[in-house]
Design a protein around this nucleic acid. Sequence first.
DNA 1: CCCTCCTGATTGACGCGTCAATCGGTGGCC
DNA 2: GGCCACCGATTGACGCGTCAATCAGGAGGG
Lengths: 206, 206
Amino acid sequence: MVQGVGPMAREAAPERRRQILDAAVRVFARQGFHSTRVADIAEEADVAYGLVYHYFSSKENVLDELFRERWSLLLEAINEADQSPSTPREKLAVAAGFIIDSYRYDPELMKVIIVDVTRAADSFGRTHLEQINAAYTLIAKIVAEGQEAGIFRDDIDPRFASMTFYGAIEQLLSGWIFGLIPATDQDLDEARGLVVRTICEGLEKR
Amino acid sequence: MVQGVGPMAREAAPERRRQILDAAVRVFARQGFHSTRVADIAEEADVAYGLVYHYFSSKENVLDELFRERWSLLLEAINEADQSPSTPREKLAVAAGFIIDSYRYDPELMKVIIVDVTRAADSFGRTHLEQINAAYTLIAKIVAEGQEAGIFRDDIDPRFASMTFYGAIEQLLSGWIFGLIPATDQDLDEARGLVVRTICEGLEKR
DNA sequence: CCCTCCTGATTGACGCGTCAATCGGTGGCC
DNA sequence: GGCCACCGATTGACGCGTCAATCAGGAGGG
């Protein structure tokens, strides 16, 4: 059955769902969540307006799914790094690397997640504060372990350090997303090491 | 015409304007920009609906003014610090201190600026990207000077370091705003030194 | 092998609530 | 008497979500 030509061929439900999700990423990335209409998603997905509501309960629910899919992978990755026998610094490097690679691999999706969820902690992000906070907590755990191991200074609240670390990374992504700092492949390659080094060693010469 | 007591006494225009701006801060902080109606601002300001449009061209224009007022002070403060004969580290401390003190002094205003402008870089913040970017640039300048003076490592792009520094601070404010990390007076007192030290010295013991 | 009926995927016009912004006024003050 | 601060009902656009109609493929009986 030819797909995409002529009258819409039937497809297995899961594929349709994916088709809509993928289209939504493109549209959200292009226009932002607030200014995309459900009709835009449907059009981009080559699907009828109503079908979006067949698979999702609302426009928010679409963004919802996109966020959960990716964020759960992030939490998993950080958690896994924490379980490994690496040094705290290596664990933080894994966390930073995962986020940066997510951007490298699928910049549109990450743009949507950062701009419309993570940084929009008022409106939509509020729903996901708990998930987002879970990431901060995992990072704080790594910092705390580094302190117990005597590697990190212990005069700083791990939660505080965690916010600093994550904030630095997110700001870099934002800079790339908004074209404020260059984002060549090489920049992305260097970024991970640079953030980790900056946070872990600081700016001053030693 | 029961406007509190008797017919509304006329007030000098600038006072009315301020009255509306101050009310807007409270409402925006409480409900967020998107979910506050112009009617809410008018009510909070004890002013007629239409008067808001007498002094401002739109709801966005109100937020606009609030942002400009505070952000210009920020740019001024950083610029002034840069002109002073202090060390780069002291200059960065001034910048961090100004932002943190802004929050201490008027948390509602800073909440609005961070949540609805600075972090909302898609929708509304887009208008102010240039202003926001100006802050990054000033900070980058301080870093660059530190590098030229041989105080900071020079294997890191100043713009990159600037994003890291600002991102860390904004994330702290966000943490306070959303109640993710404690924000007692003491926390605020310590925060400035801690961010600067974390960024300038790093997490590892030396 | 064909016809028929059934299921559920798919469609898109429409209803309805929500606000931003306008506009025709009113009244005090100089 | 004219100007200007001030008022708030009204308008009109906009977009989400609904829902009744349509259509395609498959199962089963003849």
